[in-house]
């Protein structure tokens, strides 16, 4: 790693101030960022740790029935505390990385990084979540802008994420055998006004909504409803773990399994 200063603010306001320093970068749980720094692929001069900010931690239901999760809440806490409110989301959180990673990695960090194979982007997009930052609120549909790209400005912090809670939902992950990230992950959520299907791991453009499947499932929420629907392998990631065609095929299989397992 190149050297850097570490700031450990205890309030959002102090974090924002610290991020005003030259080449400052927010540090969530660091489970992706620290390995990246070890490879010397980034060279911030200041890392502003967000994990000590109490107001950015925790899981609760809002008055309008949404599940609010603080941006610095670790995956393990979401897995535990969201279980009775939003089991599909809690289950997703309980399968990110491994237990030690889940004790450090945060939802805000994951969404800010927007790794094309990460799990949380599928949940946020599949739920139609609202990403709340220190400056504004961003709808998930506007937030994800391609691999590792988001609507966040430089130094902008994800302070909270609000999830509308669907009637039923499920996330199916088919893991890449080495990294254990999603080779393909599909989040399916059925709301009163329709179904959302979000796919991670598969596309060169990062997480995306499979609108054809959404339409089919909105009229008939059954695994068979997606029979005959197919994505083009040409738009999918092709690498040593699987071709674009294979990923496109897996999206269909994982979607059906997610529907079948949705609770």
């Amino acid at each position: 790693m190149y050297n850097f200063d570490v700031e450990t603010p205890t309030s959002i306001a102090d974090a924002v101030k610290a991020l005003g320093r030259e080449e400052a970068q927010p540090l969530g749980g660091g489970q992706t960022l620290i390995p990246t720094l070890k490879q010397r692929l980034a060279s911030p001069s200041v890392l502003v740790s967000l994990t000590g900010i109490a107001e950015m931690k925790g899981v609760c239901m809002t008055d309008d029935g949404q599940l609010a999760i603080g941006g610095a809440t670790p995956h393990a806490v979401v897995a535990r505390e969201a279980a009775r409110h939003y089991p599909g989301l809690a289950d997703l959180a309980s399968h990110i990385g491994d237990p030690a990673v889940r004790n450090r990695g945060t939802i805000g960090g994951s969404l800010a990084n927007n790794d094309p194979s990460a799990c949380y982007p599928a949940a946020a997009l599949g739920s139609g979540a609202t990403i709340i930052t220190d400056k504004r609120e961003i709808a998930a549909d506007d937030y994800f802008q391609g691999m590792f790209a988001t609507a966040l400005d430089e130094g902008e912090i994800v302070t909270e994420v609000r999830f509308p809670v669907p009637e039923v939902s499920h996330y199916q992950k088919f893991v890449q055998p080495a990294s254990r990230f999603a080779l393909v992950g599909v989040f399916v959520a059925r709301f009163g006004d329709g179904v959302r299907v979000a796919v991670t791991g598969a596309s060169n453009d990062g997480v995306f909504r499979w609108t054809e499947a959404e339409t089919a499932l909105s009229s008939n929420f059954a695994a068979d409803a997606v029979n005959g629907l197919a994505l083009s392998g040409a738009d999918m990631i092709s690498d040593l773990h699987g071709s674009g065609d294979y990923r496109a095929h897996l999206v269909g299989v994982m979607t059906k399994r997610a529907v079948a397992a949705a609770r």
Partner: peptide, 23 residues
Amino acid sequence: QCGACVVHVNGEAVKACTMLAAE
């Protein structure tokens, strides 16, 4: 990924190679 460095921080398993001492 390998987990040879796992320690407990405030009672929870953590990868000590993926946490800054300052944290």
